[in-house]
């Protein structure tokens, strides 16, 4: 399902070259889950962006769901991202001009579906994270944890075969975190979703099939 080999990535900060990834390999079968841990600034978000075809690797190959992501330009992969990937960004990235429920169903609107056909699924998801009665609120009316949960619902609304989540429980208290983990587990049971979770939360890591540590530009078993 996910097959990564020899991925390198460097950023140029003026004259300084920062080698963030130095040959990352990762194999994940369909339905598999992996937690990626590692110190801040080690390149976890960078790796996730490359997996999600938002960023390109300098070298190496990335295949997701049979698609060679590394060979195509990110813009050309828009449809693939919309259909096959669910993103939970490290910073929730909700759209402030849209209500919670409108944010949740946005990937479906991008896919060309009507709001009416998406509403029931969206409200059901919000219900599962305890935010059904906040559906009509705008993001600035929600707390940080509530926003994060709305963002997770948005990533799941089209029930994508692959979920890429960057610290999905980062802003959440234990109870909310538990709700989110239940949500993810349910999706995995129902749809066999493949998941890559970047996390600092040992509880999240414990529930994943494997835990990998990103440090010094390489992935190693934790």
């Amino acid at each position: 399902m996910i097959s990564v080999s020899g991925v390198t990535k460097a950023y140029r900060d003026g004259e300084v070259r920062r080698q963030v990834l130095r040959g990352v390999d990762l194999e994940l079968a369909p339905g598999g889950t992996v937690a990626i841990v590692g110190p801040s600034g080690s390149g976890k978000s960078t790796l996730l962006n490359i997996l999600g075809a938002l960023d390109t690797a300098d070298a190496g190959t990335v295949r997701i769901d049979g698609v060679d992501v590394s060979a195509s330009r990110p813009a050309a992969l828009a449809g693939f991202r919309n259909r096959s990937l669910g993103f939970v960004f490290q910073f929730h990235q909700l759209l402030p001009d849209f209500t919670a429920i409108e944010n949740v169903i946005m990937p479906g609107r991008i896919a060309g579906r009507s709001a009416a056909s998406l509403l029931a699924d969206g409200l059901e998801l919000l219900d599962q994270v305890g935010l059904r009665d906040r559906a009509a609120d705008f993001p600035q009316q929600l707390s940080g944890g509530e926003r994060q949960r709305v963002a997770i619902c948005r990533a799941l609304v089209l029930e994508p075969p692959v979920l890429l989540a960057d610290e999905p429980t980062g802003n959440l208290d234990a109870a909310s975190g538990e709700q989110v983990l239940e949500l993810l587990a349910g999706l995995r049971r129902r749809r066999g979703t493949t998941m890559v979770l970047v996390t600092h939360n040992p509880e999240v890591a414990r529930r994943c099939g494997s835990v990998l540590r990103l440090d010094g530009g390489r992935l190693t078993p934790a």
């Binding site: 999600g52 938002l54 813009a75 828009a78 449809g79 693939f80 991202r81 919309n82 259909r83 990937l85 993103f87 960004f89 990235q93 759209l95 402030p96 001009d97 946005m106 990937p107 991008i110 896919a111 948005r154």
Partner: peptide
């Protein structure tokens, strides 16, 4: 936000 829309698969 436009970046987020693009990330969610809105084509250019």
């Amino acid at each position: 936000e436009v970046g987020a829309l693009a990330a969610m698969g809105a084509p250019p």
